[in-house]
């Protein structure tokens, strides 16, 4: 029976008292100084349903409440107990270094919407090559001005949040309305200050909408260690509707 893998943590972390995927009993496989949090998996395949995703997340969050944790990507299983220990041995230096990076921290997710429409890409009536070149130039300038405006706003927001986080990831303009999609690695002791700072930004920038979720385990700030087994969502832009 394979073992579904939720997270890597330290061996002295208390076992979370929550159920795992499909109600399976969560176990800790220690291999000092590390431990893997696993549960037996009865199915050969697992549907990535919201229910299963939440069951994964509940276990990861329960570990996060007590200790530094490296969340494992959803859908990872190892063959057996020995396989888990071999993985812990093989990657011990990376796991230990990464646990220090996320120690005392959790991740917050921030999305910022703005209402400044992207410049139109429609061409005016073209009567000559010169018309065309003028129109293209005007479009290019409008596009650059729009992106410049976005960059300025993002820099302003970041100046207020940067002192409150240990690391960050920015993805600007994933869609024309989504000014910023960001992840922040925030120390537990700074969590309320960070949340308050976002609420202040919300008040100071009435034209923007802010959506903050978390705290999550530091999914965005851990090393992958292996290539993606299948191409899932490596390029978020692929998901953006064309309209």
């Amino acid at each position: 029976m394979s073992l579904y893998l939720y997270a890597i943590t330290y061996a002295d972390t208390p076992l979370p008292s929550v159920a795992g995927i499909d109600g399976a009993m969560v176990q800790q496989i220690p291999h000092a100084p590390l431990a893997a949090i696993v549960s037996p998996l009865t199915h050969a395949r697992l549907a990535p349903s919201p229910l299963h995703l939440w069951q994964h997340e509940v276990v990861v969050s329960a570990v996060l409440a007590h200790a530094p944790v490296l969340p494992v990507r959803f859908g990872t299983a190892l063959t057996n107990h020995d396989g888990v220990q071999a993985t812990l041995t093989q990657h011990a230096p990376q796991f230990l270094a990464n646990l220090e990076v996320v120690r005392g921290c959790a991740e917050l997710s921030l999305r910022v919407l703005w209402a400044v429409p992207a410049p139109s890409t429609e061409m005016p009536p073209i009567h000559s090559g010169r018309d065309y070149m003028h129109a293209r130039l005007a479009q290019e300038q409008a596009q650059q001005a729009w992106r410049g405006h976005a960059d300025t706003l993002i820099a302003e927001l970041h100046a207020r949040l940067a002192p409150l986080c240990r690391a960050h990831q920015h993805r600007p303009l994933l869609t024309p309305r989504l000014l910023l999609t960001a992840a922040y690695l925030v120390e537990h002791v700074q969590m309320h200050s960070f949340q308050y700072a976002v609420a202040q930004l919300d008040a100071d920038y009435p034209a923007l909408s802010f959506a903050l979720t978390g705290p999550w385990a530091a999914y965005s700030f851990v090393q992958r260690l292996a290539p993606h087994p299948v191409s899932l969502i490596t390029n978020t832009e692929r998901l953006i509707p064309d309209t």
Binding site: I8, P71, V72, R73, T76, Y219, V222, I233
Partner: peptide
């Protein structure tokens, strides 16, 4: 996060 990020291991993928 859970589908795209986190530690990716060369284990068995069950999705």
């Amino acid at each position: 996060r859970a589908l795209d990020k986190g530690v990716v291991l060369s284990g068995e993928l069950v999705i």
